[in-house]
Computed example of a mutant assay.
Amino acid sequence: MILSIRKAAKVAIIAGTLLAVSCSKPSSDAPEPRQEFSIGWSIYAGWMPWPYAQQAGIVKKWADKYGIKINIVQVNDYVESVNQYTAGKLDGVTVANMDALTIPAAGGKDTSAIIVGDYSNGNDGVLLKGTNDLKAIKGKQVNLVELSVSHYLLARALNSVGMALTDVKTINTSDADIVGAFASPDVKAAVTWNPQLSSMKAQPGANLVFSSADIPGEILDLLVVDTDTLKANPKLGKALAGIWYETVALMQRQDTKGKEARAAMAKLAGADPAEFDGQLSTTHLYFDPNAAVAATSDPALITTMKRVRDFSYSKGLFGGARSADAVGMSFPGGKTLGDPQHVTLRFDESFMKLAADGKL
């Protein structure tokens, strides 16, 4: 089974500590041009193009073009991969938008999202037993991974029917335990992601009452890179964009080569091709760089990140910050959200645009 473990749980203390000790100013020792870089990844359907590209020689092809070496490094635990990036052990990492904000950015690490790869389009969902009416969730205990994208999804679901998180009681349940917990007659409501979501939907009486497909574009999966490293080494951004778009173009093909690529990705993820294709069906991949540039430049992204930011701040994921504005974000066109003097998360469409314009 594919393990989708995009969660921010258990990192609030780490982010808070980093925020407290960081004055969030650029380092006086600016990075110099380098020849070798490491990019971390963890298993998730939308991120499997990266290890496949390494296996298929696509990484080497683009790295050679720019005279550099790129190591695509698997980290078995998702949160650990983001922590390693935040600590400077990796130059870039695959990460969800909420976690990019609450871990490296909130910790003062200036981070650039250079590839908006996909959004969850049904991979995350709210389940109720015995009813298909979301409003019936009021007053219930809801099992989920607290402080994760599941918690955010629950907040958005409740908001859609005029309720708030105070109308339910959340029960922190790990992704490893949630399928078994939902099988208990005492558990009537849960929020989770695939592959657990698929298993739980199959349980008797289970109904999917809200999913990430109801909030398209809000749970984003990104490739982020250290901003100072990127400034000193723009060829890294160009190579990564080239790798990504060549690989996703291949995987969407319906011929033998495309099927072989998806089957290889499934194997790397520990799944069979049917399972992998099933998860891709609820993952909106941006195969076309023009679409990715448009999504990144759309004002709707600012609205999404404000929602994510406000939720994260309300749950203490900005450590000791005095307001949600403490962590600044920048977007295409010079637009900012939060403190413009403390921008640590940047949505940079420039490398995706080079791909769209055929200038890589």
Rank of each mutant, 00 (worst) to 15 (best):
119 Y>F: 14
288 D>H: 03
124 D>P: 02
14 I>T: 09
190 A>M: 09
139 G>H: 14
136 A>M: 08
162 G>C: 12
14 I>Y: 15
90 L>F: 13
125 G>V: 12
99 D>I: 11
238 K>F: 00
225 V>D: 01
237 G>F: 03
297 S>T: 10
77 D>Y: 05
97 N>L: 05
248 V>S: 02
83 N>F: 10
184 S>C: 05
41 W>N: 09
159 N>M: 10
306 K>L: 02
220 L>R: 02
56 A>I: 09
332 P>K: 05
4 S>V: 07
59 V>L: 07
244 W>H: 08
241 A>I: 01
274 A>N: 07
195 P>T: 10
318 F>R: 03
244 W>K: 04
292 A>K: 06
236 L>T: 04
322 R>C: 07
72 I>S: 02
287 F>Y: 09
61 K>G: 05
15 A>C: 09
229 T>R: 05
335 K>D: 04
24 S>W: 08
76 N>C: 00
78 Y>V: 05
148 S>E: 07
188 K>A: 15
133 D>E: 15
212 S>F: 02
351 F>K: 02
290 N>G: 12
222 L>I: 08
263 A>H: 01
126 V>T: 09
168 V>R: 06
118 D>W: 08
314 S>D: 06
260 E>T: 06
115 I>R: 04
206 A>K: 05
170 T>H: 00
259 K>L: 13
158 L>T: 07
149 V>M: 12
123 N>H: 14
5 I>S: 12
243 I>M: 03
48 M>G: 03
351 F>G: 02
253 R>V: 02
308 V>A: 10
318 F>Q: 03
194 N>F: 12
289 P>A: 01
202 A>N: 12
55 Q>A: 11
160 S>H: 07
240 L>G: 01
190 A>K: 03
177 D>F: 11
152 Y>F: 13
209 V>P: 02
82 V>P: 06
170 T>G: 10
221 D>I: 11
285 L>S: 08
340 P>M: 09
23 C>Y: 08
181 A>M: 15
41 W>G: 01
340 P>C: 05
151 H>R: 00
49 P>K: 04
165 L>W: 06
27 S>N: 13
203 Q>D: 09
146 E>V: 04
277 D>A: 09
229 T>P: 06
136 A>E: 15
76 N>A: 08
354 L>M: 11
35 Q>C: 13
216 P>H: 04
322 R>F: 12
19 L>R: 15
207 N>F: 06
330 S>K: 00
74 Q>T: 12
357 D>Q: 11
220 L>K: 03
39 I>C: 03
334 G>Q: 05
11 V>F: 06
142 V>R: 01
